[in-house]
Amino acid sequence: MRARELAIAGAFEFTPDVHADKRGLFVAPYQEPAFVAAVGRPFSPAQLNYSRSMRGVIRGLHFTRTPPGQSKYVYCAGGRALDVMLDARVGSPTFGKWDAVELGGGSFRAVYFPLGVAHSYVALEDDTVMAYMVSGNYVAEQELAIHPLDPELVLPWPQDITPILSPRDQAAPSLAEALATGMLPRYEDCVLAE
């Protein structure tokens, strides 16, 4: 397994080895020793989430109030997705920056998002399946969002898709609005809670 640090402090891309033969292939998208070597601590999942989306669906930018917070390990099990992260942690050395990784399509890559980093993706194909382990259980009152089409962010959404957003994501504030209302997590709180 190869790990690559992303442009967001504490975020990583993981690319596992693929073992193929005439029967097909085997791959382990999450491997604890490689994760610990890159991140410096184990990942303790509390829940496994699964979504299937048609081409053009954008989910996110989602994050969880910290504390308690929620980190994520994300994998595309079918189809293709452009996975986007935004550092929403006030005081972080990479606050307001984003990075993107194409997942699926035979790459078997996965990405890790630390607490306070907002997560989003767009399905690049119909029937794109995303599976992600999260470090905390879903609690509706703790779930927060930033508008994924905030023009100030200049996120790398493909120009050849028509974005399909949930009502929740359509109503989400911009990053500047979220900052002004005090809903964004503080970097120190995220680091202490990890």
Rank of each mutant, 00 (worst) to 15 (best):
Y75M: 12
G10V: 00
Y112H: 13
G96A: 06
P33Y: 03
S120C: 10
I164R: 15
P29Y: 07
A37E: 14
P16V: 02
T128K: 12
I164Q: 15
P67I: 02
Y50P: 00
A77W: 08
A193N: 11
L103F: 04
G56K: 09
M133F: 14
V101R: 08
A145H: 09
R65Q: 14
Y132D: 08
S135P: 07
V101N: 05
D21A: 04
S120H: 06
L61M: 12
L184M: 12
A88Y: 05
E188S: 07
V111Y: 07
S92M: 03
K72Q: 08
S174N: 08
R186E: 06
A9D: 15
A131G: 03
M183A: 09
L144P: 03
G104L: 10
M183I: 13
R52I: 13
D99A: 12
R59Q: 02
P185I: 14
N137H: 13
G40Y: 10
A123M: 10
P151M: 02
D17C: 05
Q142M: 08
E143Y: 06
D150H: 02
E141L: 06
M1H: 13
A81C: 09
P156M: 02
A38K: 09
R41H: 14
R80E: 14
P185H: 15
G182I: 03
A28F: 09
P163M: 04
Q47I: 02
F14K: 03
P156E: 02
A37Y: 05
V74H: 12
S107N: 14
E125C: 03
Q31R: 14
P42Y: 04
E13Y: 01
I161V: 12
Q47A: 05
A7D: 11
D99Q: 02
L6V: 00
D189W: 06
L192I: 02
Q159Y: 07
S71G: 14
Q159T: 13
V74S: 09
I8Y: 00
T64M: 07
A123K: 10
A46E: 15
P158Y: 05
R59M: 01
A9L: 06
E13G: 02
L124S: 09
T15C: 08
S166E: 08
K22T: 15
A3H: 14
Q142P: 00
S44V: 14
M54Y: 09
Q31M: 06
L144D: 03
E13K: 05
T64E: 13
D150F: 01
V139H: 11
S51Y: 06
L155E: 00
G182L: 08
